[in-house]
Design a protein around this nucleic acid. Structure first.
Length: 406
DNA sequence: TCTGGGGTCCTAGGACCC
DNA sequence: TCTGGGGTCCTAGGACCC
């Protein structure tokens, strides 16, 4: 959207630290660049073909995603945001086939006009079939960005043209096993008996089979709370050897995780901290730190969680100089406010703590993330995160907003 | 030399109970 | 030589998703 000159040009986006290729335009796919390939392995191909290369810019993508989602929200009473670029809309009771088709086209056109992001829509009785529809809508311009699969006839037709490995819930392993049994299209699979599917696979695959046959098994759920929250990063180049730097990183991961926890209005009782050396290097000794702690009372306080994470880390250090390549923090045992089990002998005044957390969140919301933070988080350094090809934050940083010329 | 980050669900097997 | 029957809970690992 911000680089119209890149239309029709091969483009790739890299993972953190510019490590792997994680997104490719059609033109890049045509060059044979595979998903997840390390950058250094395809550098030559990229240069020879003048591929436009970008570091990932999650701030920008999150902001654009938010714009699209807020538009979608105005078209349904229940919006289920599945990922940064996908959402399910509950359209039940909103009209017949023709009405829905027109409605879908209108949504796609409006989102395209308002955000510049092209979207495709699939409308069907189940989520799995809707996803099949959206792929057709994306592939064939004749659908005007919206493909509806509502009758048996349309369903059979669509599934016969659809590769079973591309069905939502059918990954590489299951596709291989299906191919062994001579099943290649989604129709081949859907037309097997439930008993056959159950005897060769597990209940998850049976659900997918039912969904393909028009029986809804995956509900449209608004605001599902996460059951675990993880913040982790790989460190650039050789990794981190200094324990102080590692601790600063882990403190920041704990703080970020705590923030995510508070955003979904939850509390957690268990925390895991981990750090490990590169799993690709066999020439130097490696080391893995992975430890967990259960707190007496569930919390969402950054300070408490940072303290717990560092405690775990410090208990697991080993002798020797290791270059840690990746570290992270995971929060588990997540409960809502009503689910927090109090402790009669709790030394923390939870009311006071809640007020302090609220005050700090307000200050940081107004003045920027981590304006007020725990000292051990350090002076906001980025742990040498490598982003050589970063794009601008066109929609979230006033200095990066595009200038219109007359 | 360089190799992402975030989730969910299911199952088998082990440890335990009577 | 031959060794029961019925449960629960937890964890690791594997499959899947974006």
């Amino acid at each position: 959207m911000f680089h119209p000159e890149l239309n029709g040009v091969p483009v790739v986006v890299l993972s953190n630290n510019d490590g792997c290729v994680i997104a490719r335009s059609e033109e890049s796919k045509a060059l044979g660049i595979k998903m997840g390939t390390p950058l250094y392995q395809v550098r030559e191909v990229l240069e020879q073909n003048h591929v436009a290369v970008f570091s990932s810019n999650y701030t920008l993508y999150g902001s654009m995603s938010g714009r699209v989602m807020s538009l979608l929200a105005s078209y349904t009473p229940v919006l289920d945001i599945y990922s940064i670029d996908e959402a399910f809309l509950d359209l039940s009771g909103m009209g017949d086939s023709d009405t829905l088709k027109t409605y879908g086209e209108e949504i796609a056109a409006r989102v395209g006009r308002a955000t510049g992001i092209p979207i495709s829509i699939g409308i069907a009785p189940t989520k799995t079939l809707a996803k099949v529809g959206s792929k057709f809508a994306k592939k064939y311009p004749g659908y005007k960005c919206c493909c509806i699969i509502d009758t048996d006839e349309r369903r059979q037709k669509a599934l016969a043209l659809f590769d079973v490995g591309d069905v939502w819930g059918i990954g590489r392993r299951i596709a291989e096993k299906l191919a062994y049994h001579g099943i290649h299209t989604a129709a081949d699979f859907a037309n097997k008996s439930e008993r056959w599917v159950r005897s060769h696979f597990n209940v998850t695959t049976v659900r997918t089979w039912k969904e393909l046959n028009g029986v809804s098994c995956v509900s449209i759920d608004e605001l599902p709370r996460k059951k675990s929250i993880c913040t982790s990063r790989s460190f650039a180049d050789q990794g981190v050897t200094d324990r102080n730097v590692l601790e600063e990183a882990v403190a920041n991961f704990a703080s970020r995780s705590a923030k995510k926890l508070r955003e979904q209005k939850s509390y957690c009782r268990s925390i895991t901290a981990f750090a490990y050396t590169s799993c690709f290097r066999t020439d130097v000794p490696g080391h893995v730190i992975y430890g967990s702690l259960t707190l007496p009372v569930a919390t969402c306080d950054s300070g408490e969680l940072i303290r717990a994470a560092l405690h775990v880390l410090r208990e697991s250090y080993a002798d020797g100089d290791f270059a840690y390549k990746k570290a992270g923090v995971i929060l588990w045992d997540i409960v809502t406010h009503e689910g927090v089990q109090q402790d009669l002998f709790d030394p923390v005044d939870r009311k006071k703590q809640a007020a302090l957390i609220e005050a700090i969140d307000q200050i940081n919301k107004k003045n920027g993330h981590d304006t007020v933070r725990v000292a051990v988080q350090g002076a906001n350094i980025r742990f040498g995160l490598k982003r050589e090809y970063i794009s601008h934050r066109y929609t979230t940083d006033i200095d990066d907003v595009l200038v219109a010329k007359s």
